[in-house]
């Protein structure tokens, strides 16, 4: 029995370094959310500053900016979720129909790549791409269309945000479906062949049911991103002209909090986001485990 006890101690020791880091950089900052209900005085720090109740929230909702950033966040995130959900499914099915293996592998290698590049660098490329003198405007110029300020007009900017996010992530999104497709029993296709099924019928009655669980899983898990409109991307592409269409919670928190020093307001709106996201994550995991048998561990 003695050895059992020492084993428990060793298990705890092994977890110690990692848990210290989690406590310092994740759990302790969670305590800082009290700032949402305080007036921050730098000399007194987070804990010593006086309480103000709901004052920060009433200030926040008196300004039109809170409504704007919430609306933009949800609209952009939903557009990304919607298109980002459908396109990988279609693309995976297209790849699956391909008979030439080396071509399939080449396509996969190419379309996965943008996922691994940072938004900082891609924003650098896109700013150039859609600039007034950029390649897109030059091509439009060939058809006699005047220069469009893509990154300075609300309509175009939001389309570019959603479009470039799909461009970056659709390839990587197919991986999970391709894995599910390899899991389909080949004898099902053979049986369908014997029954004289056409390619479309096989797609409808064998392939789609074979990846249905995966589709449900991806769909339910994407629910948790309803408030994540993509800070890295928007922060590196936006400017004052397009705040109306694309200023999201995260960019507002950064500007108001870190750049302008309104720490309480930044914390207050950040807490609202974290709280709602937390509920969404629980709902999405709940649905995923109920309908797709998903377990985190």
């Amino acid at each position: 029995m003695r050895s059992k006890w020492s084993e428990q101690i060793h298990f705890n020791l092994m977890l110690l370094p990692g848990m210290i880091l989690v406590l310092l950089f994740t759990i302790w900052p969670m305590g800082g959310i009290v700032l949402a209900f305080k007036h921050f005085i730098p000399t007194k720090g987070i804990w010593g500053s006086p309480w103000t109740g709901w004052e920060n929230y009433s200030y926040l909702f008196d300004t039109p900016v809170a409504l704007r950033v919430f609306k933009n966040t949800v609209v952009i995130a939903l557009m990304k979720i919607g298109f980002g959900f459908l396109i990988p499914i279609v693309f995976a099915l297209m790849l699956n129909e391909l008979r030439i293996q080396w071509f399939k592998r080449t396509v996969q290698t190419i379309v996965y790549l943008p996922h691994f590049l940072s938004w900082v660098l891609l924003a650098g490329i896109l700013r150039d791409f859609f600039a007034v003198d950029g390649i897109v405007n030059q091509m439009l110029g060939m058809f006699g269309i005047n220069e469009i300020m893509f990154l300075g007009e609300n309509f175009w900017f939001r389309s570019i945000i959603v479009g470039s996010d799909i461009w970056k992530e659709f390839g990587f999104g197919t991986i999970i479906y391709l894995a599910a497709l390899t899991g389909i029993n080949p004898s099902l296709y053979e049986a369908a062949d014997i029954d004289g099924a056409t390619r479309m019928q096989k797609l409808r009655y064998v392939t789609l049911p074979g990846i249905a669980t995966t589709i449900v899983l991806v769909g339910t898990l994407s629910l948790q991103n309803v408030l994540n409109a993509g800070f890295d991307q928007i922060f590196n592409l936006y400017n004052t002209l397009v705040y109306d269409s694309s200023d999201i919670i995260d960019t507002y928190v950064y500007r108001a909090g870190i750049e302008e020093g309104h720490y309480e307001v930044g914390t207050a709106i950040g807490l609202l986001k974290s709280g709602v996201s937390f509920i969404l994550i629980i709902i999405s995991y709940g649905l995923a485990s109920r309908f797709a048998n998903y377990r985190i561990f």
Partner: peptide
């Protein structure tokens, strides 16, 4: 390992909830 679930849920919680950017910055 008796405390396994305690640690596990703490980690899962740290993944699902965060204090936001500003508290992180100040701390």
């Amino acid at each position: 390992f008796k405390l396994r679930d305690v640690y596990m849920w703490l980690l899962i919680f740290s993944m699902m909830f965060n204090g936001g950017l500003i508290p992180f910055y100040l701390i």
